[in-house]
Nucleic acid binder design. Structure first.
Lengths: 233, 233, 233, 233
DNA sequence: CATGAATGAGCTTTCATTCAT
DNA sequence: TATGAATGAAAGCTCATTCAT
């Protein structure tokens, strides 16, 4: 059977593991400190949004003084952008390698698609990014453009490859590839947005494994049905 | 044929229309003023989020002075909550009447569902609410709870009725009603969130009629397929 | 005899005297408040310089809260520039009218020049400006350029007219008009700079009437001497 | 002819030159480092004033790290005072020796006075001090007092000796020695203040040799004229 | 009811200073 | 001695809110 987590294996983020063991501990901190700040900032930004986030709160969670933030980031906005970029990098580096080598059924591929997307998003720092970008899209157009180009378009292309895989094997029957890919990509995206906005609320709590299975099954049925071809027959 | 706009017919919102024809213009203003403030505030809140919104900016767009806002609303947060409630009322008053009387095919009902949701959301003031709630969910838990109870649960129930309609007519084959309804409700919800976050960006612009048609068709195929029933047969 | 204060008679600054007596006191304040802030700011800026001046201190002396400053001025720098411009206006409006109508001796004219300069500078808000500009010249080049164009060049031209008056009457003998005018203008300027930097210190305290008389007399002797013409005779 | 630069011959400043030739380069640095900091600090203080000067900027120009400044100076204010004192030392050590031995004409002595003052001020590190003290006089009273006592009073005494030299030779005719000396001292002082505040601006650029010659000639005429003695004769 | 100048608490940001190395 | 990352007090500035009119 397939490894559900196989897709993003190269995601060893930032590679500080091979950092130079210099004699001065504060020099090692210099490299780690920004990472701690970014991690804390990501949490607070996702929780509260850009404007509601206080730099002092980020500092508190990062275990530093407010002034320290400004040693590494020019201002709050620069911190925000750095947070987004840093958190997105796992997604950016997500390769198509898995698809290149995939030889299973289209149905299983849909399972892979949904589960891997979820695992990628939730297991990495990027978990809260979709919600954050959604919330701040109008306030940070360039950042949103970057997100669209790098994440959404990228995700849509992966979906398109998956669809093409099924079409090539005569299992998927799709009239409008572009819109269909968009629909599926958006439903994946939606999951992560929801997860960070509503999953704290009882009525919205989702049993993720079940949800993912059901979604994959539903997508499979929608894609493999030939009904769309001759509705009036 | 069906009237696509038929579903929310009782939505004559606010009903002050009858008493507008008073003799004194400043008295008329007295009642309209808060509506203008709410409308302006909704725009700004949706555009920028709660924290980034300045009361002075709301006042400017409403054509009043900042102090005037505080004649009608205790503070910014109260204004925000009033905005959400006011904007949500069209959805809250959305009744099941249409479904009670519906007699067409389940496939057509899916078209109705998607188009009416879109028309309801976009034609009314509530257009930006899903995005706004999504963004501020963590900052305003009670408001989010209210939204979940009144909008999301409500929407899910409508979806469930639609699904049941198809099941009853032996056209829809659904294993997990709850999760399936959730998936469909979320994909509807997502549309409106997307529309207000990313539709200003070229690559995300969507041809809505085509999208809605394709989505309805896709849902129909997914729901009417019997494959899910016996995958191992 | 002549009135020593005759030169700048039109210096009724800003003309708030004819302000509209509206019924609302705070509306009257709106016009006066910035003046109070400018006056307080001028004092503090002259005393301490731009960087050392705290906005809160200006507010305190103006009898307002810090935030009020920002109702009228975009930021500290804008306040500074407004202060300079406002304080300079008496000098800018200083006309040549007195010179146009002057008919006395060149010697007396030198007395007028020195005394009127001093009276103009010290009796008006502009007293501390020369010192302030001198101190901040490198930090505010545009402002300094403005000062040079409007004040120093203006002052030099007046000196030149005074010199020409004496030359025309065969009483002043000047080889290099430009440099001589510069020397005299600078000695006038220096007085006001000194007055605001060192006059608080005992050893630098000057008996101004005596100083001005002596300076005028010294200038007269220097200008009326013919020695320079034939040093090698 | 006279040597224009003759007056301050003992100005071999600092005298550490003899001990520089030590064997270990880092030991040499140890002694030079503070000088480099002082030199850099003087530049920045003169350019920007005390408050606007950042310690980090001084460090940058001195080619050291901010912390290094505090190895040699207790704080910014101590650095400032050290800068002033160090920069003033050439003036402080300026002796009257030249005057003791002078035997030329009083007229030539005026030329010497103006040119030597200028050369002393501009050729040494003290060039920007007068402007700096003028700007910060109110913020550093003790320093200003020191400057007044050591520089201004000193300079005035030299001027007085020059005037006395002319009086003794029946060439200068002075009514009020004190005020006249003050006027001349101030006009010398003014030159250096001007030079550092306005000389960067086109309209204020001065041809120094011409200016100095003209000033000396003007002073001579003013001092040698007998008019002041009996204006009513 | 409507105003809008004034407020002042609280935020972002700066930067002189420290101290472990 | 020299470092330079970290500090944290203090400054500039914002803006929700008030209140005299």
């Amino acid at each position: 059977m397939m490894n559900t987590d196989a897709l993003p294996p190269e995601n060893t983020p930032k590679g500080e593991t091979e950092e130079i063991k210099t004699h001065r501990p504060w020099q090692r901190k210099k490299e780690i400190r920004p990472q701690e700040i970014l991690a804390a900032a990501l949490d607070v930004f996702v929780e509260q949004g850009f404007s509601a986030t206080k730099v002092a709160e980020v500092a508190r969670r990062a275990g530093v003084q407010p002034g320290t933030i400004y040693v590494y980031f020019e201002n709050k906005e620069a911190l925000f952008k750095a947070v987004i970029h840093a958190a997105m990098s796992p997604v950016l580096s997500y390769s198509n390698e898995f698809l290149d080598n995939y030889t299973g059924t289209p149905e299983k591929l849909l399972y892979e698609l949904t589960h891997q997307w979820w695992n990628l998003m939730e297991s990495e720092s990027c978990a809260g990014i979709p919600k954050l970008i959604t919330a701040e899209a109008n306030n940070f157009p360039e950042l949103t453009q970057f997100y669209i180009d790098q994440v959404l378009v990228h995700a849509k292309r992966i979906v398109e490859r998956v669809l093409q895989y099924g079409i090539d094997r005569n299992q998927f029957f799709i009239e409008d590839m572009d819109v269909t890919a968009r629909i599926i990509m958006m439903s994946l995206h939606e999951m992560t947005v929801y997860a960070h906005s509503f999953s704290n609320f009882d009525k919205m709590k989702i049993d993720m494994p079940v949800y993912l299975d059901t979604l994959a099954a539903f997508l499979y049925k929608g894609l493999s049905s030939q009904k769309g071809r001759s509705p009036e027959v």
